[in-house]
Design a protein around this nucleic acid. Structure first.
Lengths: 341, 341
DNA sequence: ATGAAAGCGCTAACAG
DNA sequence: CTGTTAGCGCTTTCAT
């Protein structure tokens, strides 16, 4: 049974003073005498008084709560993002209300309503894969609630964004493979209607061109999951025996590709070097350890939260938007190595 | 700029009726005429009216929010737990306020205050490693706020708990190794002052005794991180060349031990079988894939949330507590195989 | 230096 | 069938 939680009224009654005096005493209002202040504070401490944040929010029209809508929590990248957000929120005195869309459009809509209803001061959103309509997000802007998209941004809606530079990541990975002497670098890519697919592919091609290598369609296949890699890699290698490197659009694809390659009797990195994208924990577990592009989830979470809080606290006009692009890092491990040819 | 969010007052004014009528109309009160209801509902829809959850919470003295205090989000087990919690919360109409203690006692205290302040209806807690005093948790019970501990429970505080049966997990792992014909089964254990360390060790020993194997102190070493496994495994194997199986207290330790064993020129599972504990994604990535004990984070999260919501909604007296013990599963993969000796 | 009172958005008892 | 009013906990203006 939820017993009565102590309020300023209780303190006022016990001390025989008014609630306004208690309120002022608790926040060190200069008008209040030291003696009263001490009395109030001591009693508050003794009674374990905690200000009612709900009442405060209602009164001040500010909830100090940030809403987060995220596709799925159980995913190293996203959980890193959440962690970064939570750390900044904590630092700045905000609470985080977490909603998981589970990649469902319908649930995303409900999540939005929930956050609206809870009068969050701002929202951080990464769009669900199944979302193709974006009207529910407009409610936030309409109500003047600042919104920052992270990672999976929504092209149709003008807001602040925090994204990783996929193009640069693709470039770095490919440049590295070129640098260690690979000649035929394949790209296992994500669908080209996805921004990450486009970006990483673009970086791959730019690196090839920049270093005067040919961009060959036969070396680029759509393969962006562990399952697809398991199915497609062998055939691909057989059909393109000259391939000496693969840049895969994510770590799990890269790792599965490595497994297939090894099963075919070829060596990684001696015969074929492999670079992934993401730098999840798996990259350290697989054999050989995976060279990859660090996706910086924690940093993205931090930046998104910083941007949002800044917007909230500075009442920035709703029509100046900023896109923060995080630069990825190349991490070289065992799966890619200088060739002696 | 946060513009005015629409309230029932706005609707009442526009329609020239009273707020109470609007309030009632919105919740289908039988007293209200169909016509008024329709008018109200249509306008509400048109204006994108969302009830102010803060006002509601204040009024009803129920926030429909559950507070979660978790040591770290970026950890497969914990993020699975959160996911399970979120799914149930969503289903039952609760929101989740997430606090990350980052394994810090001080932060855990602040987190508790935050949740108290936000008048959460209940709390789910997994205790930080550095927490040795538990007074801050008592505030919840004192205020009559239901609390459920999950995974890392607090021995001193009487509450509901959801934990995995570590002892059973240890037993299953060891029994499996015995079953495939291993004779000298080592245990890489966690410190014995930790409950998980105790439990998994106890299960290991019970299995040995149950199948009439000797419990040998030389076969049990404290080794519960990837780093320790890297340092200690080689020496351990050299000193105990008869070991033909290792049950490690967690997956990362198991995987690192496998790596060392392989580097020593021995084969897994042919020479030494290995079983871990946790079943994180790594278990599928490593070579060979890891036999392990499924820790069921998602289920733990679900159960903890269910238990809590049940307590909240049934106003269960604060002095009947229940401990839910989840049974782990054994998952056999490549790292353990029947021996032909 | 302190108190009284209004009001944030909503519900519900009471009154018609 | 609808309106009036009090009050949830707190802050703040206006009095005193």
């Amino acid at each position: 049974m939820k017993s009565h939680q102590v309020t300023i009224k209780d303190i006022a009654k016990t001390l025989g003073i008014s609630v306004s005096t208690v309120s002022r005493a608790l926040k060190n209002h200069p008008d209040i005498s030291e003696e009263t202040k001490n009395q109030v504070k001591n009693l508050a401490l003794k009674l374990n008084y905690e200000p009612n944040a709900l009442a405060l929010s209602l009164r001040k029209n500010k909830s100090n709560t940030i809403g987060v809508i995220i596709p799925e929590i159980v995913h190293h990248f996203f959980s890193s993002v959440i962690s970064g957000m939570e750390d900044i929120a904590y630092e700045r005195g905000y609470n985080v209300m977490m909603c998981q869309s589970n990649e469902s459009y319908e649930r995303e809509i409900i999540n939005s309503q929930t956050l609206l209803s809870n009068r969050v001061d701002g929202v951080l959103v990464s769009v669900s894969k199944n979302t193709v309509q974006y009207e529910h997000f407009r409610n936030f802007s309409n109500q003047g609630i600042p919104m920052v998209f992270f990672d999976r941004v929504c092209p149709d809606i003008l807001t602040d964004r925090v994204i990783i530079n996929d193009e640069e990541g693709g470039f770095l990975a490919t440049e590295h493979l070129i640098g260690i002497g690979c000649n035929k670098i394949a790209h296992f890519s994500a669908p080209q209607h996805l921004l990450i697919g486009q970006g990483r592919m673009a970086g791959y091609q730019r690196a090839l061109r920049h270093y005067k290598y040919e961009v060959e369609p036969r070396l680029m296949i759509h393969c962006d999951t562990s399952e697809l890699a398991m199915t497609l890699t062998q055939d691909f290698i057989i059909r393109n025996p000259d391939v000496d490197a693969i840049f895969a659009v994510n770590d799990s694809t890269a790792i599965s590709a490595m497994k297939v390659i090894q099963r075919m009797g070829k060596r990684v990195p001696e015969d074929i070097s492999v670079v992934g994208f993401g730098d999840g924990p798996n990259a350290l577990i697989c054999t050989p350890t995976l060279s990859t592009i660090e996706q910086k989830g924690y940093e993205i979470g931090q930046e998104a939260m910083k941007l949002l809080v800044h917007k909230i606290e500075n009442d920035i006009s709703t029509d100046s938007f900023q896109t923060k692009v995080i630069s990825p890092n190349l991490i070289v491990r065992e799966s890619s190595r200088r060739r002696n040819s």
